[in-house]
Nucleic acid binder design. Structure first.
Length: 520
DNA sequence: TTGTATT
C-alpha cells in the first residue's frame, strides 16, 4: 500500500506500456485519407485533464461539419481541443483520423471570423466520453502531422470543466484524518484520481478535502452514499460531500465575502437599510446627550448613561426584521435596580423605521426615560458593581465613537462619514487569547453581520460567525465574536452576557480553549 | 451549545 505524505496528492496510476515504434501519420494531400496503419492506444502518464494549453479561440468562428443523424452525444461527453493541425486539412480530412476512436458528434475546424483563415486547430466532440479519452491518450503529443514541427494536441477544450464535475469537496472531516483515510472512505464509489486533504501552513488539516473521481457518475454516487451519512469524531456536524466549486462559483463566493466584509463598514453604500447606520446614530446620539449634559453644567451620574445605552440597544432593529425586545438583565453580579429583573420584558423604546424612531424631546436629548418601565426614576441608585460593569461596557462605546470625533453630534438622518477600518484576515478568524467570545441564544434571525453589529460598540470586531445548520440553512443560534484586545472582550461579556432578546438571554463568555473541546 | 473550510 502506498504511503502518503501530508501534502501528497494521490493519483490513479496506470501501468506504463512500451511506446510503439511505428511511423508518423502521413497524409498524401488535401482530402486524402490518412494512412491506414492502425493507431495504437498509447497510454501516457499525464492524465486528463491536467494539461493546460493557451486559449486558441480569439476572433475565430467555428464552422461545423454537418452532424450525422443519430449522433447523440453522452451527457458527460468531452469537447476536445485539437491543436497543431496543418492548415490545409479540413474537417473531412481530419475525420478519418479521429473516427477510429469512436463516433464523432461534431468536428469543427477553427477559422478566423473575418478572413476565414484556417487557424490550425479544431474542436472535436465524440458521442461517447470514452472515445475522447482514447483519442487523447492515443494522440496527444504522440504524433506530428505532416508539415508541423510540434506534435498534435488532443485535450479537453478550455471551455470544458476542468474536472469540477467529478471533483468533490468533503467537509466536516476529523482533523486527524489523512489522505489515506479519505481515500478509503471514497474508494468504494469509483476510481479516485486525486485525494487531497486541505491543510494550513502549519500542516494541520482544515477538516476538509478534495476527492476527484474519474467520472461524474462516480462522484454523484459518493455524494448520495456519504453526504450526511456519518459524523466524524470531534466534528461539529455530519460529513459534507458535495461537488467542489467551479472557478466561477469560487469567484462569486469570494466577491460575496468581500461584500460581507466591506458592506458592514460602508453601510451607506452596501447596506443602506441596515441596522448599522441607525444603530451607530443611536450610539452617537447617546454620546451627544452625554456631552450636552456635561456642558449643561449638571452632573451626570456615570452609571445612568451606560444603562440607557444598553436600553437603546434594545431598539435595535436588525435589517428590518420584526423588532425584538432586548433587555440587559444578568451578567451583572448585582443587577441595577432600575433595569428589569422581573423576568418581564421591560423595554421600551418604540421602533419606527428600523430604529430611528427613538422619541426625542424638544431639547434634542433622547428620551431615555422611556426605557424605565418599572416606575423607578432613571438615575436611581445602582450597585457599584453594576455601575462598574456598565461603565466598562460604556468604555467600549467610547472607544468606538472616538473613531469619529467629528461626527459625535451627527444628527439622525445624516450620513456617516469615513467608516472605521476594521481589518479582517479571511483565514484568521480567531483573535488573540482572551479576545474570542462564544455567544449562545442568539435570535434565529441573526447572521454574521448582525452579530458583529451587536458587538461593535465594545471594540474592534475582527471576526464574527454565526453557525448555520447546512440542511435547513437556519441559524444554530450560537456563534463567535473576536475582538482585537481582551478588554473589549471583557467589556462585551460584562454588558451583553444575560442580555435579554425576546424570550431568550444571551450567553456571552470567552470561547473555550481549543484543547478543552477535544474528545480525546 | 465552542470557528462551516474550496489546493
Amino acid at each position: 500500500m502506498a504511503r502518503f505524505t501530508q501534502t501528497e496528492t494521490r493519483r490513479q496510476h496506470h501501468p506504463q506500456q512500451p511506446q510503439p515504434a511505428h511511423s508518423s501519420l502521413v497524409f498524401t494531400g488535401p482530402g486524402a485519407p490518412p494512412t491506414q496503419q492502425p493507431l495504437l492506444l498509447i497510454p501516457h502518464q499525464r492524465q486528463y485533464p491536467q494539461i493546460t494549453f493557451p486559449k486558441p479561440m480569439n476572433g475565430s468562428e467555428p464552422i461545423s461539419i454537418h452532424p450525422e443523424s443519430g449522433n447523440m452525444k453522452d451527457q458527460d461527453a468531452i469537447k476536445l481541443f485539437i491543436g497543431q493541425i496543418p492548415r490545409n486539412l479540413e474537417e473531412k480530412d481530419l475525420k478519418p483520423l479521429f473516427e477510429q476512436f469512436g463516433k464523432i458528434h461534431e468536428l469543427t475546424v477553427l477559422k478566423d471570423r473575418y478572413t476565414g483563415m484556417h487557424k490550425g486547430c479544431a474542436f472535436l466532440t465524440y458521442c461517447a466520453r470514452e472515445s475522447a479519452i482514447k483519442a487523447q491518450n492515443a494522440l496527444h503529443e504522440q504524433k506530428t502531422l505532416p508539415g508541423m514541427t510540434r506534435p498534435i494536441q488532443v485535450k479537453p477544450a478550455d471551455s470544458e470543466s476542468r474536472g469540477e464535475d467529478r471533483k468533490l469537496f468533503v467537509g466536516m472531516l476529523n482533523k486527524q484524518q489523512t489522505e489515506e483515510d479519505v481515500y478509503r472512505l471514497f474508494e468504494p464509489y469509483g476510481v479516485i484520481e486525486e485525494c487531497t486533504v486541505l491543510r494550513g501552513p502549519d500542516g494541520n488539516s482544515k477538516g476538509c478535502a478534495f476527492v476527484k473521481f474519474s467520472t461524474h457518475t462516480e462522484a454523484q454516487s459518493a455524494i448520495s452514499a456519504l453526504h450526511g451519512s456519518q459524523t466524524m469524531p470531534g466534528a461539529s456536524s455530519s460529513l459534507v460531500v458535495k461537488f467542489a466549486d467551479t472557478d466561477k462559483e469560487r469567484t462569486i463566493r469570494r466577491m460575496q465575502q468581500m461584500v460581507g466584509q466591506f458592506g458592514i463598514f460602508n453601510p451607506a453604500i452596501a447596506l443602506p437599510f441596515s441596522t448599522y447606520s441607525s444603530y451607530a446614530h443611536a450610539l452617537m446620539q447617546q454620546q451627544a446627550a452625554i456631552m450636552a449634559a456635561s456642558h449643561g453644567g449638571y452632573l451626570t451620574p456615570s452609571v445612568a448613561f451606560p444603562a440607557t445605552q444598553i436600553h437603546q440597544m434594545g431598539a435595535l432593529n436588525i435589517n428590518s426584521l420584526p423588532p425584538t425586545t432586548m433587555t440587559p438583565v444578568s451578567g451583572l453580579s448585582s443587577p441595577p435596580a432600575n433595569i428589569t429583573t422581573s423576568g418581564v420584558p421591560s423595554i421600551v423604546t418604540p421602533i419606527v423605521n428600523g430604529f430611528t424612531g427613538i422619541p426625542h424631546q424638544p431639547n434634542g436629548h433622547p428620551a431615555v426615560e422611556t426605557v424605565y418601565t418599572n416606575g423607578l426614576p432613571p438615575y436611581s441608585t445602582q450597585s457599584p458593581t453594576a455601575a462598574d460593569t456598565l461603565q466598562q461596557a460604556f468604555t467600549g462605546v467610547q472607544q468606538y465613537t472616538a473613531i469619529y470625533p467629528a461626527t459625535t453630534l451627527t444628527p439622525i438622518g445624516q450620513t456617516l462619514p469615513q467608516p472605521p477600518q476594521v481589518i479582517q484576515q479571511q483565514q484568521q478568524r480567531e483573535g488573540p487569547e482572551g479576545c474570542n467570545l462564544f455567544i449562545y441564544h442568539l435570535p434565529q434571525e441573526f447572521g454574521d453581520n448582525e452579530l458583529m453589529q451587536m458587538f461593535l460598540p465594545f471594540g474592534t470586531v475582527i471576526s464574527s460567525k454565526v453557525f448555520m445548520d447546512r440542511a435547513t440553512n437556519q441559524s444554530k443560534c450560537f456563534g463567535f465574536v473576536s475582538f482585537d484586545n481582551p478588554a473589549s472582550a471583557q467589556a462585551a461579556i460584562q454588558a451583553m452576557n444575560g442580555f435579554q432578546i425576546g424570550m431568550k438571554r444571551l450567553k456571552v463568555q470567552l470561547k473555550r480553549p481549543k484543547d478543552a473541546s477535544r474528545p480525546y
